[in-house]
Amino acid sequence: MDIKNNALAKTARAYAGGGFGKRAAKDFKRNYSLYLIALPVLLFYILFAYKPMYGVWIAFTRFNPAQGIVGSPWVGLANFTSFFRSHYFARLMKNTLFISAASILFSIPSAVLLALLINEVKSKAFAKTVQTITYMPHFISLVVVCGIVADFVSLDGLVNKILALFGAEAVSFLQMPEYFVPIYIISDLWQEVGWSSIIYLAAIVGIDAELYEAATIDGAGRVRQVLHITLPGILPTVVIMLLLRLGAIMNVGFEKIILLYNPMIYDTSDVISTYVYRAGLENFDFGLSAAVGLFNSVINFALILISNTLCRKLNETSLW
């Protein structure tokens, strides 16, 4: 015991004494193999996260890949001002916020509702079956889901076949701007509602059973139990999920939109990230695209910071 204490005291002294250089040298001598393990990890972050951050410089140039970042002509804020002045700006902001908000508005309440309904099922086997089936679309890849959607809403697709039974005329839904958001939301619900209900179901199961017993003794009916015990019980989870979604409100399902949209419906479907993609990789206006991307990143940064601080305050749960 004494020996061990002595050794500890020695290490403590070694760490406390000496200047920064000395401490760093000691630390390196002791931990060099750990730093060796961290090296590839750091390399990854430098190459694929920090080097692109340095690349935001592109936003302030008329970038030409042949000349490189430093060699390209510096244009100051010109890329930003031309974006803010263009008619795209208002449209992109509106679509981004609208699609995000609509998707949050539909997805969270329906997932909560589904969790409540599954929770009311007495038969374990039936509940399990419902879960297995409603989780299933989550495992179909996005490309295939979008392929299915595009096929179903096409002129001779399933949706039109069903509508024809009621005498409706066939419509090419993906070519009409007013249908894009509904298509986006409905397919999203089909794919994700079951899966997103898991977390609420877990929260419901976690509620103390004694609360229900007490309520039953007090004569509270089923509905009142749901209103006064279940819903308040899962409220923290709902709020956290809501905050996380709000923090990411500028990141709409960009891959899904790229897969589904077309020039005829840009009016309602084009969002900031799809515009960044088109401006940069289809029209090769790299400076403009990087500027719009940077604008988006900065707003995101602020939003994530806010939502995370709120989460932390509310529940001592946070992103990190």
């Binding site: 190459l47 592109i58 990143s297």
Partner: peptide
């Protein structure tokens, strides 16, 4: 080092810089 890692969750360079990197 932990800070260097976590910071990347908050901010990224965007598509074009990533593409050229």
């Amino acid at each position: 080092i932990a800070l260097v890692i976590v910071f990347t969750m908050f901010f990224n360079g965007g598509l074009i810089p990533f593409y050229f990197t």
